[in-house]
Amino acid sequence: MTLLLKATHIVLACLGIILGITISFIALENYNQGRPDLAPWRFGMSVFLTLYASAQLVTAFKVKITSPHLFIFPTIYIFFAAFWEHSSRGYIKNWAPSPSGEAKIQNLICLTIIIATLIIATRSIIKTHRHKHN
């Protein structure tokens, strides 16, 4: 069972790396096709997703993979990607047609959620590696 969990985690991490790199090509294509406003956001998302999936690939080879690993990694990955895309599109449009005050509040909420997700992702990796060494 452990070997199956490890193999599944490795496949998911490889798919995550591929998706992260694909998003960077999409960002480049957005820039080339006249949507330069989307490109920086998608490059940022690409960097995080690729680094997070790469860290998960390293984790798969260094520690014993358990069922929670298989649940946490794709959940954080998908949530971050979907929320980042949603919030970046809203930010670009300034959350139109909302008033300026509501747009600022929405930007603050989205930034808080993105930072929280980054912290959770980083903590899950650090905790996994620290638990291995204890």
Results as ranks from 00 to 15, higher is better:
K62L: 14
V47S: 11
F80S: 02
F83C: 04
C110G: 10
I23V: 15
I23C: 07
I119G: 03
H131L: 12
A96C: 00
K127G: 08
V58H: 06
L4H: 15
I120C: 09
T122K: 02
T8L: 15
I114A: 11
T128S: 14
I126K: 04
F43S: 04
W84A: 14
Y91M: 06
S54P: 02
T75E: 06
P40M: 03
Q106W: 01
A96Y: 05
G101L: 11
N134K: 09
G16Q: 03
I76H: 05
P68A: 02
I113Q: 04
A81K: 00
K64M: 08
T50L: 05
F73L: 05
Q56G: 13
S24W: 13
E102L: 12
K6I: 13
R42I: 05
S54R: 00
F25T: 04
I114N: 06
N134R: 10
K62Q: 13
R42Y: 15
A60I: 10
R35C: 01
K62N: 06
N94H: 02
P99E: 07
T117S: 14
I125N: 09
P74S: 07
L12Y: 10
I17A: 12
N134F: 10
S54L: 13
I78M: 12
Y52C: 06
A116I: 10
T75K: 08
R123H: 12
W95H: 08
L57Q: 09
L118C: 13
L15W: 11
L38N: 11
S67Y: 05
I65A: 02
G16D: 06
K62S: 09
D37T: 12
Q33H: 15
A7W: 12
Y31W: 15
N32L: 15
I92C: 01
I21C: 13
L15G: 10
Y77I: 03
A13C: 14
W84T: 08
I105V: 11
K64A: 09
P36H: 07
I113V: 15
S24E: 09
I109E: 00
R35D: 07
Q106P: 00
P68W: 05
R89Q: 11
A82V: 13
L49P: 07
L19W: 07
R130H: 12
S87R: 01
F80G: 01
D37L: 14
N134Q: 13
L5V: 09
I113N: 05
W95V: 01
C14D: 05
G20C: 06
F71K: 11
R89G: 05
G90R: 00
S100W: 01
P97T: 02
Y52I: 01
E102A: 08
A39K: 04
F83A: 03
V63I: 14
I119K: 02
P68G: 02
I10M: 15
L118N: 09
Y31Q: 11
Q106K: 09
I21E: 08
A7Y: 14
I72C: 06
Q106F: 02
E85G: 09
P68L: 03
L28C: 04
G20I: 08
T8A: 15
I115G: 03
I126H: 02
I119Y: 03
S98C: 05
I126L: 12
L38G: 03
G20M: 07
T59N: 11
I17F: 12
H69W: 04
S24C: 11
I78Q: 03
